[in-house]
Structure formats: C-alpha cells, structure tokens
C-alpha cells in the first residue's frame, strides 16, 4: 500500500492535518465556537467556488472569504456569532452563494463535491509543502500569543475583565482557524475538517486536564482516525471520509461513556 506515492502523500498529509486539528481543536472546543467552525467550512466552500468563478485557484477564494468573515466575527464579538439564528443565516447564505458561483462559472459539479468531501488520495507534493508551512506558521503564532489565547479561551469571562487584548487575540485566532480550514478543506473536504476540528478535542477533554495533554490526545485521536481510515478505505475501496467520521464518532462515544461510568 505504501509503495504508491499518492498513499505516502495521504499519510504524510494526515499527520500534519492531525497536528493542526489537535492544536486548533482544543481552543475551538474551549471557546465553544464549534458551530462557527462549521459555518467557516461552508464559507470556505463558497470561497472556493468564487475562486473557480474568477478563474483563479480555489484556495485564493477560500482564504479571502474565510479570513474576511473571521475579521468580521472577531470584531463584532463572539456573542453574535454564537447565536443560533445568525449561524443558520450565515450557513444558508454562503452555501447559496457557493452554488451560484459554481453555476456562473459553468464548472463541473464534480468540483463542488471535491471541495465538500475532499480528495485525500489526490494529494500532490505541493499540497504537502503548503500544509507543512502552514503548520509551522500556526505553531509560531500560537506560541507567541499562547498565554493570552489560553486565558481568553478557557476563562472568557475572567479575561473579558482582566485582559485588554481580547479582541485582537480573538481575531488572530479566527484568522488562524480560517487558514486551517481553507488549506485542509482542499484535502479532506470542508465537511470533514469540521469533524476533525471538533470531535477529537471534545473527546480529549474527558481524559486529559491540561492544555498540552488535551492537544496531544486530540492529535492522537485525529491521527488514529485518518490513518486507520486511509487503511480501511484502501482495503475496502469505500470512501475514506466515512471511515474517518465513523472512527471519530466511536472515540467520542467511548469518551462520554468512560466519563459517565468510571469518573463519577
């Protein structure tokens, strides 16, 4: 299996995607912005089809759309973006917009499914380069704002009174998240990236109680899901997205049951 270059690339890419999702996911879950993350993946879909419509690369459209909406949400404040109604409005609007751009671009519909579900076995070497650079960039920026980010994420009420850099920290985090979603969505699809950003971190918090521990565990959970998923998909010839989603769901169920029966 590993003698095929496309499988090698898929395994390497999954490693870095898991790294990104582990780190960002812990903060996504702590900030309770899972649903905005979901919206962000829909925004990235509409951004990608905008890119196709313009005739440039989809990633450019994705980055423009997601970063702009991150700035908007970061400065308006998270309260609005957490409201259920505004999330549905955003989602619907951006999916509609994405469909419109695809129709206008006269593109093939296979493109749309590619963006939504990704093509983890269609990874090129240049995809890997972009992924590795993004991972490094996100690690560096997160390190620089780490103390403020953890205060703002794990004690948002306390930080709102005692820290003065909340807005800027929120915007930086959302921009990092936007980049993560845009770059990884090309590979695993915008629907699955939402799963990898939220489920492993939600499971990890039942087993680990430090930020480092939770990050490591969510990284491991993502990695198990993607690697085992790739293997099963190779063996069975069924879609890898299904296996990843199923494995992450099982891990989450185990975590919840473990917490229910063995902790309390």
């Amino acid at each position: 299996m590993l003698s095929y270059p496309f499988m090698q690339y898929a395994f390497i890419a999954s490693f870095f995607i898991s790294l990104l999702c582990g780190l960002m996911g812990v903060f996504v879950v702590a900030r309770k912005t899972a649903f905005f993350t979901h919206t962000l993946s829909e925004i990235s879909f509409s951004g990608a089809s905008f890119g196709v419509f313009l005739g440039t690369s989809p990633i450019l459209g994705m980055l423009i759309f997601t970063i702009l909406s991150s700035f908007m949400v970061g400065s308006v404040g998270s309260r609005l973006s957490r409201r259920e109604s505004s999330i549905s409005v955003f989602s619907v609007f951006f999916i509609g917009l994405g469909v419109l751009f695809l129709a206008l671009a006269d593109g093939q519909s296979s493109y749309a499914t590619n963006i939504l579900f990704g093509s983890i076995v269609g990874i090129s070497f240049s995809n890997i380069v972009v992924l590795v650079s993004l991972s490094i960039a996100i690690l560096v920026v997160t390190t620089l704002i780490y103390r403020k980010l953890k205060y703002n994420s794990f004690d948002s009420v306390g930080a709102s009174f005692n820290s003065r850099s909340n807005t800027i920290v929120s915007i930086i985090f959302l921009v990092l998240l936007a980049c993560t979603v845009s770059v990884t969505a090309q590979i695993v699809g915008s629907l699955l990236i939402f799963a990898l950003l939220t489920i492993p971190a939600s499971s990890a918090k039942y087993f680990a109680h430090t930020i480092a521990g939770m990050t490591f565990l969510s990284f491991m959970f993502s990695l198990i899901g993607t690697w085992v998923g790739l293997y099963l998909s190779y063996v069975t010839n069924l879609p890898v997205s299904f296996f990843i989603a199923a494995i992450e769901t099982i891990i989450y169920l185990i975590a919840v049951l473990w917490d229910k029966f063995f902790v309390n």
Partner: peptide
Amino acid sequence: YPLMIKDFIGLGLQ
C-alpha cells in the same frame, strides 16, 4: 469543563 484547578489558576499569570 476540563482544565485542572492548578492550570485554571495559572491563567491569571499574564
């Protein structure tokens, strides 16, 4: 809420 008490207190060090 997952963070252990020691680490939650540490959030105050800014």
